[in-house]
Amino acid sequence: MTATDVRDRALPARIASFPFPFPTDTYRYSTNVEPALAPRSTAAGSWGEHVLHVDEHYASDSAECAALLAADPTRLQELPHMRPAAWDAMLYVMGELRRARPDAFGLDRLGGDRWRWRNALLRIEQEFTFGDDATLPSGPLEFVAPQVQDDLVLLDQREGALWADAGVVTAAADWSMRFDVGMSFPEIHGPVPRVHPEGVIDRAHQFLMRLQPGEAYRRTNWTMTVGRRLDTATETYPEWGPDRRLVLEQDLGARLHLRVEVQHLVRLPSSGAVLFLIRTHLLPLEDLARVPAWRDRFAAVLEELPEDMADYKGLTRFRSAAVAWLRGAA
């Protein structure tokens, strides 16, 4: 970071820790996985020190997740054989929350399979016996999902493929866990343009199947969203879809957001399932433009992005307006 990179001397944490995803002026799909748990520096700061990142939106994201699950229980999907993986995922998430914020989260083994969980931010204290559903107020996925800002998808490995057999998804970028549950990894990615002839999905699939216990990798993905709206699931398209057309009217810099997913890929230890964590970060263009290197890079990426990719990401209606706004903000 150089002095000319940053217009504001003190950038707020939401900008300084934003995972800006573009290393170059052009973007194409690739098998862009790298080992997790290493801070990555950006023009404004850094991100990625821990698997889980607890930020200023924690309480409101938690409330939104819980409210969505109450209003639409189908956001949680779990095929019956995935219960061991759900327990495994819950324990892993608790351990990672504690690792990221030992001041706010506690996980103690009381002996044998007995554990105590403490979440000071949401004032939750819970003792439980690993594997015993009766010791939790709900199933393990439902219990832990509102306590973490990531969406959780669990992939079972069998017959030479990975299958998305469980998940809690309340911040989908235009997809549906209910629709995808039980699909294989290649089936889920069927609609993505370009990636199949280039072997990107196949390589990622092979890579995930070779993940060993304890290994954690990460990648980023991105799109754009109108408003600070986490839930852009297929189920609620009528609520948010029309915004894509209305965006041009006013306040473009405040309303248009770069939506970045930090995805972690973890082989859970005892169930052998792959846990796919999806954390969504939203940054309005007016915040993004406070970092000149990001403003210029994102304008270049958007401008160059091929039509089919822009279309798949749902950017077609406002992409040129966004480029013009970014260039005008210089």
């Binding site: 690739s30 098998t31 862009n32 080992p35 390589r203 092979q206 890579f207 070779r210």
Partner: peptide, 25 residues
Amino acid sequence: MCRQGVCGQCLVPVAAGRVDHRDLV
């Protein structure tokens, strides 16, 4: 990047010698 032979980042040109390829790319 991945250091597991899947991302293809560390592709380097060979000048001489036989290679034991162990990647997935």
